[in-house]
C-alpha cells in the first residue's frame, strides 16, 4: 500500500514537472518575446527592454522557468505583464467559481449516470434500454456550450424561469447564486452524464456476465439485489478510471460554458488573457487546469485500491 502510494506520488511529481516544462516551453519560449507580444509591435524598443528587465524576461530560460515554478509552489505567481496586477488573488478567485461549476456538474453527472447506465445494461435487449441508449448517444453529440444555449433558449427566453446568465457569489445572495447555477451546471452535468452513462452501461454489462453474479443468484439473491450488492462495486473500477479522464473534458467544457453564461471563472480569465496577449496569465491558468487533471488522476489511482482488494496485494 505504502509502496503503491510512493510510486504513484513519484509519477505525479514527474508528470507535474514534465507538463510544466511543456507549458513553459510552449508559452514562454516559443512565442519569442512575451514583452513584445504584450506591448504590441508598435512599442518602442526602450519600453520593451524596460518591461523585459522588470519581469525578469532578460534572464536565461532556465532561470525564468525556476522562478515561475517557485511562484506557483509558493502560491505567489507574481503579476501580469499586461495589467500589472497580482496574479495570485485573481487565480484564487476564479478557481473558486470554476470549482463550484465543475464539482456540482460532476455530482449531477454521477447521480444521473449510475442508475441510468445500470438500467440500460440490465435492459439492453429491451426497448426501454435501447431508447435510453439512443438518448445518451444524442447527449454525447451535443457539446456543453450548445446545451447551454439551448437551455437558455427554453428556460430563460421562452419560460423565463431562470436567469439567462450571470454569477453571484454564494455569500452575497444564496438564492440568486443557486438560480444562476442551475443552467450552467445542467448543461455541463447532463452532457457529462450522457458520456458517463455509456461507460457505466458497458461496465455493468461486463459484470452481468461474471460468474460471481450467478453465484450470488444461486445463493438466493434476486437479480437486482445481486447486481447492487456484488456487481456495482466491481463495475466501479473501469468507471472510476474514466472519471479521472473525463475531468479534463469537464474542465475544458467549463471554460466554454463560462463564456456562454458570462461567469467569471478560470475559463473567462483564460479567454480574456488570450485576447489581451497576457501570456503569463495564460500560462498560469493552463498550468492550473493541467495540474487539477493530474492530481485528480492521482487520487483516482489511489481510489482503486479502496475498491479492488486485489491491488492491495499486488503492491506488496
Amino acid at each position: 500500500m505504502t509502496l503503491r502510494l510512493l510510486q504513484r506520488l513519484a509519477i505525479l511529481v514527474a508528470s507535474l514537472v514534465v507538463s510544466s516544462v511543456i507549458v513553459f516551453a510552449f508559452m514562454a519560449v516559443l512565442p519569442g518575446d512575451p514583452a513584445r507580444v504584450a506591448l504590441g509591435v508598435n512599442a518602442s524598443d526602450a519600453a520593451v527592454a524596460e518591461m523585459r528587465s522588470e519581469f525578469g524576461l532578460d534572464r536565461s530560460p532556465v532561470a525564468q522557468y525556476l522562478s515561475w515554478v517557485r511562484g506557483l509552489v509558493t502560491l505567489d505567481p507574481g503579476s501580469s505583464y499586461v495589467s500589472g496586477t497580482a496574479i495570485g488573488p485573481q487565480l484564487a478567485d476564479r478557481l473558486q467559481v470554476t470549482l463550484w461549476l465543475v464539482v456540482t456538474a460532476m455530482v449531477v453527472a454521477l447521480v444521473v449516470a449510475i442508475p441510468v447506465g445500470t438500467v440500460m445494461a440490465v435492459r439492453h435487449r429491451q426497448v426501454s434500454g435501447l431508447a435510453l441508449s439512443a438518448v445518451s448517444q444524442l447527449g454525447v453529440a451535443i457539446p456543453a456550450f450548445l446545451a447551454g444555449i439551448l437551455l437558455i433558449t427554453v428556460f430563460a427566453v421562452k419560460l423565463g424561469w431562470l436567469p439567462a446568465n450571470g454569477w453571484t457569489p454564494p455569500a452575497d445572495d444564496p438564492a440568486m447564486f443557486l438560480k444562476q447555477l442551475v443552467l450552467p451546471v445542467a448543461s455541463l452535468g447532463l452532457v457529462q452524464a450522457a458520456v458517463l452513462t455509456r461507460y457505466v452501461r458497458s461496465a455493468v454489462l461486463d459484470v452481468l456476465r461474471e460468474d460471481y453474479l450467478r453465484t450470488a443468484r444461486a445463493k438466493g439473491l434476486p437479480p437486482m439485489r445481486a447486481l447492487v450488492r456484488h456487481g456495482l462495486r466491481n463495475a466501479a473500477v473501469p468507471v472510476v478510471t474514466v472519471l479521472g479522464l473525463q475531468l479534463a473534458t469537464l474542465l475544458i467544457g467549463a471554460v466554454v460554458v463560462e463564456r456562454v453564461f458570462v461567469i467569471p471563472g478560470l475559463g473567462s480569465l483564460l479567454l480574456d488573457s488570450v485576447s489581451q496577449r497576457d501570456l503569463i496569465m495564460v500560462q498560469d491558468v493552463v498550468m492550473i487546469l493541467v495540474m487539477a487533471v493530474l492530481v485528480v488522476n492521482f487520487v483516482v489511482d489511489l481510489l482503486y485500491v479502496l475498491i479492488d482488494p486485489r491491488l492491495r496485494v499486488s503492491a506488496r
Binding site: P31, L251, I252, N297
Partner: peptide
C-alpha cells in the same frame, strides 16, 4: 491526455 484538444488549441491560438 491532460491537455484536451480545446485547451491545446487555445494555447496555440494564444501564441500564434
Amino acid at each position: 491526455l491532460a491537455f484536451p484538444a480545446l485547451l491545446l488549441a487555445i494555447m496555440f491560438a494564444a501564441v500564434y
